[in-house]
Design a protein around this nucleic acid. Structure first.
Lengths: 234, 234
DNA sequence: CATTATTTGTAAAAAATTGTTAACAGCGGG
DNA sequence: CCCGCTGTTAACAATTTTTTACAAATAATG
């Protein structure tokens, strides 16, 4: 019905809280991804499809505050922190790191929903306006307007799938991404799509960007693993 | 910090709280307007220069909740409510009316500052969207009067459906919108009209705005999903 | 090192989606 | 009532995505 449901990532190591929250928000039509550690969350966030992160402040290993710091440095995604403590200092630190909100447990889920709604209204509008342009090997890629130009300034036309794939690549430079993950990022249907689709799309990107698979400089094959974006971003 | 200091309006009938808050925020370079009633606040807000409203929930006459309701219906300004009570219900009502935040007194002013900063980061990006005249690729589109002119100033006449469609596009730049949503936006009914209507209307908009579907710069199709407005609004 | 199995590159066909044109029905104004 | 305009639908062409098939390349094995 609507354009595309907002994508919310929940990081919470307490299973009950996590699944309760996930099913509650999910019942309002949001697309939910759950996980229990910061590392798993970052994998999901790397796909750049998330609109909002709800993170517990107390996690094993890397905690919610650290995710906030790292994420805010490179993204305008909405961040809501959850905490068991109502300590002023904690709250202020979280907010000053750039978290949009800080909710203390036990929280009223209806209140959280209201905060989620209000924040999503802001972030989805903002995502459209923030203009990021990536440059590599003489090419220029404007994510918002979907325009690509080569070194001579001539436009290169990308199809939707090519655009989505390139977007995942440039936002994850140097990271090896397997085909399942790339499929998830580009396809709009969730039923089993053939992983070879990715190979074909990579081939088409290579053709449009003049990249030779035998001596790749931009889209490098990682045999048995997937593909890596190996161009130097400037 | 930014080109022009953000403008914050404070409505609070308790003089001490108000002036303390005003001078504190003012010391960080914000432009502050103080007042003690909703009516005076509305006068200031009518000038359309405000970025953020901080309102006490308990005011003589029209209270903070009522301001929120009325304001949110026509504006995307940031709203932070202040309250002496920590009642859950009050807070939820405020948030569901569209307030971005709800802070209980006595509040830590450093926390409030952090919330103000974070919210302003969101709203200043959004301010562009509350605008009523949109400019893109040399064209000018006045939503209220339905007037469109090209780069040379020559008028372009739109039909009702074309106008509605363009309005949805410019107010949701960068968002992929599926055909159902676009249909709902132009016909205000929900029943099953052929989705291909949208394709024809998009094609007509493209013709009038000189956009080539093979290398779109304004109305971009997102294969399998819908359409996106990808022109840069200026 | 030769052989084998697995993975990837490529081309082309098939399936799904969109672009385009044209025709039709409804509606309001003259 | 006729006329022009608008929104809608239908039909067909073009494009995009996905699948399929096979050649080439890489890794594994003895």
């Amino acid at each position: 019905m609507s354009s595309r449901p907002a994508h919310i990532v929940i990081v919470e190591d307490e299973p009950v809280t996590r699944s309760t929250l996930a099913s509650y928000l999910g019942s309002f039509g949001y697309r939910i991804s759950e996980c229990d550690t910061a590392e798993k969350a970052e994998k999901i966030l790397a796909q750049n499809t998330a609109d909002l992160l709800i993170a517990d402040i107390n996690l094993q290993g890397k905690d919610g505050l650290e995710i906030t710091r790292e994420l805010r440095a490179r993204s305008e995604i909405g961040i809501i922190l959850l905490s068991g403590r109502t300590d002023d200092v904690d709250r202020i630190v979280g907010l000053e790191l750039g978290a949009d909100d800080y909710v203390c447990k036990p929280f009223n889920r209806r209140e959280l929903l209201a905060r989620v709604k209000n924040l999503l209204r802001r972030t989805t509008a903002m995502r459209a306006m923030t203009r990021r342009v990536f440059r590599f090997n003489g090419f220029s890629f404007d994510v918002a307007s979907r325009q690509v130009t080569d070194a001579a300034g001539h436009p290169i036309v990308l199809t939707r799938a090519e655009y989505e794939l390139l977007r995942v690549f440039v936002t994850n430079p140097g990271a090896v991404m397997d085909r399942d993950r790339l499929i998830m990022a580009i396809t709009h249907r969730q039923d089993g799509t053939n992983t070879r689709t990715i190979d074909v799309l990579v081939q088409r990107l290579r053709a449009k960007f003049g990249d030779d698979p035998k001596a790749p400089r931009i889209f490098t094959t990682s045999h048995g693993e997937g593909y890596v974006f190996t161009a130097q971003l400037g």
